[in-house]
């Protein structure tokens, strides 16, 4: 599984990365977590607000920090 965190390094983006890492640890899934800071990479998903989280190519959330439980739900379905 590939989880991408889209953002330019702002506080919300960093918090999102932290929560995603926590969720992956709690769920015990094998996931590659990638931080995408390149704007071209962000816009390629049609994402116009950051932070955003993409799981296996599907945009799950845009513009807010997800809860750890939300991320667990996405990655364990």
């Amino acid at each position: 599984m590939k989880i991408e965190i889209l953002g330019t390094g702002c506080p919300k983006c960093n918090k999102t990365k932290k929560f995603v890492e926590e969720a992956v640890a709690q769920a015990g899934v094998d996931a590659e977590i990638v931080k995408v800071e390149d704007m071209d990479g962000i816009l390629a998903y049609g994402v116009l607000i950051t932070p955003a989280v993409v799981v296996d190519g599907e945009v799950k959330i845009v513009g807010r920090v997800p809860k750890v439980d939300e991320v667990i739900e996405w990655i364990t379905k």
């Binding site: 998903y45 049609g46 994402v47 116009l48 607000i49 955003a52 599907e58 845009v62």
Partner: peptide
């Protein structure tokens, strides 16, 4: 389009 829908929802 997934990313654009989510962007709208994020407004």
């Amino acid at each position: 389009i997934n990313g654009l829908l989510k962007s709208a929802e994020g407004c």
